[in-house]
């Protein structure tokens, strides 16, 4: 298990060596900042609701860009061979990389903490939904990172990995907005697998074990899927 730590440190620090990290963070902050503040003063409410409402959609195309290179780049350059002939297991590799991507998504959220802090000067902010929203955002980031990692295990091309990850994340985010297209018998099921639905619950400030279990199991599924793919390939 010590190997997980070193793989995590390596992957996490590599994000900040390459310019990709800064590009992704800037794009994320630009988009969320613009959409949030363009309507913020109109609604005249000291709340982050609009920010968290939009977050699953922003996340579903920004987050898959973070883990997209984690496996496909290694497979492409061949460093995968040097890595796997070190005394590490698939589990160590995947966990280390998954944690690095999750830590990076969390780091991406840190600058947005400025929003609630400044809003609290403007009015009386309700901290419950804000804290709930950030916990939800970290969990959502973890789940999407794990899906991105899975996409990255499928191909040696980072762009393809990104697109696959994005499609899966978009599907999970938007499925509960399109429930009226489906027969009522499967609506309950579709709502349960929708990431947007569970995230909305948490961001209202209600921390329900069902939602937490949902995000944790989604992360687990992504990791398990990548594990199966790697085992099958090598």
């Amino acid at each position: 298990m010590r190997q997980v730590k070193y793989i995590f440190i390596r992957e996490f620090s590599e994000y900040f060596i390459s310019p990709i990290a800064y590009i992704v963070i800037s794009i994320f902050l630009l988009i969320t900042g613009w959409f949030f503040f363009s309507s913020f003063f109109l609604s005249n409410q000291a709340a982050l609701r609009a920010f968290f409402l939009l977050l699953p959609i922003t996340f579903s195309f920004v987050v898959p860009a973070i883990p997209m290179r984690l496996l496909s780049e290694e497979i492409n350059i061949g460093t995968y061979e040097t890595l796997l002939t070190l005394p590490v297991t698939f589990r160590d590799v995947l966990l280390g990389k998954f944690l690095a991507a999750t830590a990076f998504t969390t780091a991406m959220l840190v600058p947005t903490l400025a929003y609630p802090i400044f809003i609290s000067f403007l009015g009386d902010i309700d901290w419950g939904p804000v804290i709930g929203g950030y916990i939800g955002a970290i969990l959502l980031g973890a789940a999407f990172s794990s899906i991105g990692l899975f996409a990255s295990s499928l191909t040696r091309n980072q762009i393809i990995a990104f697109i696959i990850g994005m499609v899966i994340c978009f599907f999970l985010t938007l499925i509960d907005k399109m429930l009226f297209f489906f027969p009522s018998s499967i609506v309950g099921f579709l709502q349960y697998i929708a990431a947007g639905y569970h995230f909305e619950n948490i961001s209202k400030g209600i921390i329900d074990s069902r939602d937490i279990i949902y995000f944790l199991s989604l992360s687990f599924l992504g990791l398990y899927g990548s594990h199966l793919i790697l085992q099958e390939k090598y």
């Binding site: 010590r2 390596r10 590599e14 460093t79 061979e81 040097t82 070190l86 005394p87």
Partner: peptide, 24 residues
């Protein structure tokens, strides 16, 4: 491995330290 695939972005020193850590 053939043609020694190593992490291109890492410094040699960092890389060797990383390997030493992984090797415990």
């Amino acid at each position: 491995p053939e043609s020694a695939p190593l992490y291109h972005e890492m410094l040699v020193y960092d890389y060797l330290t990383y390997i030493a850590n992984i090797r415990e």
